[in-house]
């Protein structure tokens, strides 16, 4: 059980992602400064959209769409960083 501590930690991360609909929708620090100081208009939208603004596309319920985006992103990042770390470690062992 102890060796699988990260499974429990991953569940905690997913639980945190499920809180995302409760997040404040006010502009963040940089957006606020850009609005107040009059340069927010310089911002350009991305040329394409995938899960824009953490809302999973095609789902009516916005809270659900946000939670789904959060879960997808959390799993992608766990996989990406775990995989990258594993790769770097394995490559080191082979060349050592």
């Amino acid at each position: 059980m102890k060796s699988k501590w990260w499974l429990i930690a991953l569940v905690i991360c997913l639980a945190v992602a499920c809180l995302a609909p409760l997040a404040s929708s006010s502009p963040d620090g940089l957006e606020r400064v850009a609005e107040d100081k009059g340069f927010i208009g310089l911002g350009q939208d991305s040329p394409y959209q995938v899960i824009t603004d953490y809302v999973f596309p095609g789902i009516e319920n916005e809270a659900l769409a946000t939670i789904l985006a959060g879960i997808v992103g959390t799993l992608i990042l766990f996989g990406a960083a775990y995989g990258l770390a594993w790769l770097l470690k394995t490559r080191k062992r082979r060349t050592a």
Binding site: A9, V16, A17, S25, G73, L77, A80, Y82
Partner: peptide
């Protein structure tokens, strides 16, 4: 490494 990336992504969604 994986847990921290996952946690940081999830926590960054929670604007306070």
């Amino acid at each position: 490494m994986g847990i921290l990336a996952a946690f940081i992504f999830a926590a960054q969604m929670l604007n306070f």
